[in-house]
Amino acid sequence: MDGVEAFNSLPAGKLEAELLAVCAAPAWGSAVAALRPYRSRDAVLAAADAAARGLSWPDVLQGLSAHPRIGERAQGDSQEAAWSRREQSTAASSGDDDTRAALIAANHAYEDKFGHVFLIFASGRTQEEILAAARERIGNNEALEREIVAGELRKIALLRLERLLDALD
Rank of each mutant, 00 (worst) to 15 (best):
A102Y: 05
D97G: 01
R100P: 00
A102F: 06
E80G: 08
S84I: 15
S78D: 02
N107T: 12
D96A: 05
E87Q: 10
L103R: 00
D98L: 14
A102Q: 09
A102I: 12
A102E: 09
A81C: 08
D112F: 09
I104A: 12
E111N: 01
G95E: 05
R85G: 05
E111I: 13
S93Q: 14
R85N: 08
Q88F: 10
S89L: 12
D112G: 02
W83F: 15
E87T: 10
S94A: 05
E87N: 11
A106Y: 07
R86C: 06
A109D: 12
R100K: 15
D96F: 06
N107C: 10
A81Q: 05
D112T: 15
D97M: 09
A105I: 09
I104L: 09
A92P: 00
Q79P: 01
R100W: 08
D112C: 11
I104T: 13
Q88C: 09
A109I: 11
Q79A: 10
D98F: 08
A105M: 05
S78G: 11
D97H: 07
A82F: 06
N107P: 00
A106M: 05
Y110L: 08
A105G: 02
Q79G: 01
R100E: 10
S84R: 03
E80P: 00
E87M: 12
R100T: 12
D96S: 08
A102H: 04
S78I: 15
T99K: 02
G95Y: 04
R85C: 12
S94R: 04
G95K: 05
E87F: 14
R86N: 08
A82G: 07
S78H: 07
A109Y: 04
N107R: 02
E111W: 03
R86I: 14
T90G: 00
A101V: 08
S84F: 08
W83G: 00
A92H: 11
T90H: 08
T99S: 01
D96C: 03
A106K: 01
I104G: 01
S78P: 03
Y110R: 02
E87C: 12
A91Q: 07
G95N: 05
Q79V: 15
H108G: 04
A91H: 00
S84C: 13
R85K: 07
L103C: 04
A106R: 01
A92S: 06
S78Q: 05
S93R: 13
T99H: 00
